[in-house]
């Protein structure tokens, strides 16, 4: 495992003398890529055309011509209240990311750099918890959320249910598992001498963590942040289960409440879907390196 793997595929394969042209392979790859790109490409194409040119008795969807514009995007943006839901997403993603990375790095440092009697058991608990299907816990969890008290401003109804705070907490509980696992593997690779030097200098455990180890983990934290952003942004289930007030839904869960014209107008639906997909696509293309690194950080460790 390396901190920041070089972009996948950058290694040159030295096959020496038996280098043949790869016409067949390229043809295969092009066909596969076209098929893979088709659904998104189709969504983009559909979204740019007015319903009047494609639906009903007009040209049909599989056609060229008519108008091309961004009206569907404007309509979807307004009709589905997307600005409001994007705000809710930010209110979930930002605190969740900060808390997850802070807590996971603390646990990871404690478990990998100091010896607890139960550190392996704890690490297993965290990892296993992360792998449990959510539905295994939701029945009691739902009751728990109805019963647990919480004060304003974290809760405007006095309990955890129907609160963004509750969503942040469940993401925190689940994602701690994955991040702790990845980060503890990461910290194990940092030479122990660093700890000892800090110890000899009289640095406290907290200072060692905060000023020495955490900065060293920056690449891993960046990778995890990218990945966790996508996962939390993409969460659909927790919003559906633990929220009720329509205005509070983060954007992905809000998709479930699309109504009216969205049912009968595929062009509008395409535009709405693309707007919601856009942030993760941007993050992916901008931070591809971190993204892939994050995924493989947790997995290449044997």
């Amino acid at each position: 495992m390396t901190a920041t793997p070089a972009p996948v595929g950058s290694r040159q394969v030295v096959t020496g003398k038996r280098q043949r042209p790869h016409y067949f392979t390229h043809a295969f790859l092009i066909v596969v890529s076209l098929i893979w790109f088709l659904p998104l490409g189709w969504a983009v194409y559909t979204s740019l055309r007015p319903y009047g040119d494609t639906g009903g008795n007009a040209r049909g969807y599989f056609s060229i011509g008519g108008a091309y514009n961004f009206n569907n995007f404007v309509n979807a943006w307004n009709q589905a209240d997307l600005p409001l839901h994007f705000l809710q997403t930010i209110l979930v993603v930002v605190p969740a990311l900060i808390l997850i990375l802070a807590f996971a790095s603390m646990v990871a440092v404690a478990l990998s750099r100091y010896s607890f009697r139960f550190n392996l058991a704890l690490l297993m608990l965290f990892t296993a918890g992360n792998l449990l299907p959510q539905q295994v816990v939701i029945v009691p969890l739902f009751r728990l959320y109805l019963a647990l008290p919480m004060f304003a401003p974290l809760s405007d109804n006095g309990i955890w249910y129907d609160q963004l705070f509750g969503i942040v907490m469940i993401h925190l509980a689940f994602q701690l598992g994955f991040c702790t696992f990845v980060l503890s593997n990461y910290f194990k690779q940092i030479p122990k001498e660093i700890n000892e030097a800090a110890f000899v200098d009289g640095a406290s455990v907290w200072r060692t963590y905060r000023s020495v180890l955490l900065p060293l983990a920056r690449p891993a934290l960046a990778a995890l942040a990218t990945l966790e952003f996508t996962w939390i942004y993409n969460d659909f289930f927790w919003g559906i289960l633990l929220l009720r007030t329509g205005d509070k839904f983060p954007v992905t869960s809000a998709l479930n409440n699309l109504s009216g014209q969205f049912f009968t107008d595929n062009n509008l639906l395409a535009a709405g879907s693309l707007i919601v997909a856009l942030p993760t696509l941007i993050v992916y293309f901008a931070l591809q390196k971190h993204f892939v690194a994050g995924l493989t950080l947790g997995s290449t460790k044997g």
Binding site: W36, F37, P39, L40, T230, Y233, N234, D235, F236, T252, S253, L255, N256, S273, V276, A277, T280, L281, V283, Y284, F291
Partner: peptide
């Protein structure tokens, strides 16, 4: 690319 999309999308 599809991996970064939510299954809802």
């Amino acid at each position: 690319m599809p991996v970064v999309l939510s299954l809802a999308i």
